[in-house]
Write a protein that binds this DNA or RNA. Sequence first.
DNA 1: GTCTATATTATGATAGAC
DNA 2: GTCTATCATAATATAGAC
Lengths: 182, 182
Amino acid sequence: MSRPPLAREKVLDAFEHVLLVEGERAATMDRVAAEAGVSKGGLLYHFASKIALEEALIERMDHLVALDMDEMLADPSGVAAAFIRSSAQTGDELDRAITAVGRLASNGSALSVEAIRRLRVTWHDALKPFVESEVGLELILLVSDGVYFNNALTIGSVPEIADMEALITMVTTAAGVQSPAA
Amino acid sequence: MSRPPLAREKVLDAFEHVLLVEGERAATMDRVAAEAGVSKGGLLYHFASKIALEEALIERMDHLVALDMDEMLADPSGVAAAFIRSSAQTGDELDRAITAVGRLASNGSALSVEAIRRLRVTWHDALKPFVESEVGLELILLVSDGVYFNNALTIGSVPEIADMEALITMVTTAAGVQSPAA
DNA sequence: GTCTATATTATGATAGAC
DNA sequence: GTCTATCATAATATAGAC
């Protein structure tokens, strides 16, 4: 707990970065060690195996998700709007972690698949009280997934979001979201 | 052209299958050959490299997309509705091909990333005449991506679709889709 | 805690028999 | 067209010095 060693964080950052920019195939132990500026031995001191690296990344994601949830619940524009907008926040800490874990998930990492599924349930339960129908809730989650997917697809480059606010209005209206002012 | 050899198709099916069920990591030449019931040498006669395998899968996807497009345009319930419904058609030939190529794409295969991007443009252009606004069009594409993403995530198992028809109605209404009867 | 070997296995690809 | 070796390289992981 308390304060994780700097080198450990550097390695985890490097793992995440390579996953995002070049994909899972490129994220080998050698490559990650080089990216982090440590030797392979150094990396293996902190993470004894590749699975240990994955677990650490999932843990990071879970932590950031919890923080984000608190922020969303406090957002004056409403939870649902905050949620969709948040899924378009490419490049922030949370989005990077989710996308990186998503890459692992689409590669057969059972732990990561499970982590993403848990994440979806968490979001579902958090949004439920604010949306009138289950279908509306599903719509919101699907749009968020779509936005995420398009971000994830664009390996290494920043994707284009056209008119996010108009989209958010359209979705929240159609889904039947409780007005934040109400 | 004309009629591709049976063994070639078997290998391609095996490649696709392993990609879907176990992910890109598992889809090695050895594994695919075994899955197809041929030797590695046999596989390599038809596909000289891993990239050749990828290219063939992309070609299959492009072909199936073209066929699907014809069907969608002829669908009496409207192109947009047919499109969303089609993205939920887990397990059919087209969906399998797209998901498999998607797996390659999320692994840094430049060819596959390009192929998925092309696909998205194709869909965008095909739907455009039937949707009132660009935002509405974007909504439809994002929901489709979301549905696809959830299918793709669930490695090896079948995902749950709650009330697809209600979702389609909600999306097409919100997006402002030209009525098929009109 | 971090490093340099080194072992071990997996992977993509070649060569050549049948 | 399909097979059985075989090779070269790259990946994960270990051992042990500093």
